[in-house]
Amino acid sequence: MQITLDNPAGAPQPLSPYYSQVARVEQADGGALLFVSGQIAEGATLAEQSRGVFETLTALLAAHGASLADVINIRTCLTDISELEQYGAVRREFLTGTPPTSMTFEVSRLFRPEARIEIEVVAAVPAGR
């Protein structure tokens, strides 16, 4: 099994030097699994932060030949679960196909005080990409 840890050029860089944004695990069939670290974004509203996160996820996946259509699992942390509908509306803009497996939960805070949402994903990249 080959594992590559990456902070792709051309994508937003990590906010800390203590983690990699993408772990690519090569599969025997020539495909790969991408494990993308939790992402946050700037913005005044949860919707703005959510859009920023999905834009960052899009860039990180694209750097490895994938897209949001390849996402098989998504985990979302919200600091206020009452804003779930606002997040859900943005999520539906970006995840338009069959929904991936999912877990969404409320946390008391995230590592940046201004962050209201953090999202991490796992994507399955077909062979040849």
Rank of each mutant, 00 (worst) to 15 (best):
G65H: 14
S67M: 06
Y19K: 03
V90S: 08
G38I: 13
G31H: 15
P14I: 12
V53E: 03
E106S: 11
L84Y: 08
S50Y: 05
L60Y: 02
G43T: 07
I119H: 11
T4K: 07
N7C: 12
G65D: 14
F94G: 00
E93W: 06
G88P: 07
E114G: 01
E85N: 07
L60F: 06
D80W: 10
I72V: 11
P126C: 12
Y87K: 04
L78C: 11
G43H: 06
V25M: 14
G52K: 10
S102K: 08
F35C: 02
A62N: 12
H64R: 14
L15E: 12
Q21T: 00
L34C: 09
Q86K: 07
T45K: 04
L60Q: 09
V121E: 00
A63Q: 09
T56K: 14
A59T: 02
L60P: 05
A11C: 11
T4A: 04
I74D: 07
L33S: 09
E120S: 13
P17M: 05
L110R: 12
A11D: 01
L95R: 04
V36G: 04
S16A: 14
P12M: 13
F105D: 02
Q13A: 15
D6L: 02
A63W: 12
L95A: 01
A123G: 05
E118K: 15
P113L: 11
V36P: 06
G88C: 08
E106F: 11
Q39P: 03
Q2C: 11
A59V: 02
V121G: 03
R112I: 12
A44C: 02
V107W: 12
L34P: 05
V53A: 07
T98I: 07
I117N: 03
D70Q: 09
Q49N: 02
L84Q: 09
D70M: 08
Q39D: 00
V22P: 00
P17E: 03
E114P: 01
F111P: 12
S37L: 00
V25W: 12
L57P: 05
L68Q: 02
M1H: 15
P17G: 15
V122N: 01
T104C: 13
Y18D: 08
L61P: 06
R129I: 06
Q86E: 08
V25G: 01
I72S: 10
I81K: 09
D80H: 10
D6G: 00
G30I: 14
N7Q: 10
T76H: 15
E118N: 15
Q2I: 15
P99N: 03
